[in-house]
Write a protein that binds this DNA or RNA. Structure first.
Lengths: 105, 105
DNA sequence: GAAATAATTGCATAAATGTGCAAGTATGCA
DNA sequence: TGCATACTTGCACATTTATGCAATTATTTC
């Protein structure tokens, strides 16, 4: 496993691994349409600036996508991409064929 | 989504979302048998005490399991459990049926 | 143009986190 | 009994991170 790839995966998981960010993801998960940031504020009891920063983090990791509509910015969850990244990791972890030079017998 | 459950999931993802810990997981992933901590040290260029702490974190989140054999402690990856937690999250994220009172039309 | 709304950014701050080193504990072995 | 090995723990430290508030930018509306 390449170090760059490992770091990328770690960053992706770290982005999801924070309470308020995961709450935002869950919230977006329950919406069919894009939601603006103010609407998303409702799900966390933090300042709007904090939500703004968390959404930026999620966007940087490809977890959400945004679109600017007038003065609003609407976000949607990248369902397929996130799900497939998680499944890829799950498959890797379950796969016993990728053995290397461990201290196995 | 219950806050306690959300926090648990976030903690799980955060445990995986750190470079050295993820490296340890990948390393264990490639081993059929349990590996002791010293062997696992090889995969990260950090002090043994750091590896010890990371393994403790992973164990606390149920990602690895350990067994004490003499003065050694051997670790194995909880493949099925970790994989199924990741898949559960993937399913949740892809599932559009769980809509709530968003600002959807 | 002025006021209102949506969102971002700068700054300060507190807390969490990762790390190394040195010392400590526990076990095995000669 | 004494020494080596395997691991953990205490401490210090630097960095990152999450947060709130105030100010700023951008856009809409009156």
């Amino acid at each position: 496993m390449d170090a760059v790839e490992t770091q990328k995966t770690a960053d992706f998981l770290k982005a999801l691994g924070e309470f308020n960010r995961l709450s935002l993801v869950y919230n977006l998960c329950q919406c069919e349409s894009s939601q603006n940031a103010m609407c998303l504020c409702d799900c966390c009891s933090v300042d709007a600036s904090v939500v703004s920063r968390h959404l930026k983090t999620l966007a940087e990791r490809g977890i959400v996508t945004f679109e600017k509509v007038g003065r609003e910015k609407t976000y949607r969850l990248n369902r397929e991409e996130v799900a497939s990244q998680l499944r890829e990791l799950a498959d890797l972890i379950e796969n016993r064929d990728c053995k290397r030079g461990c201290h196995d017998d």
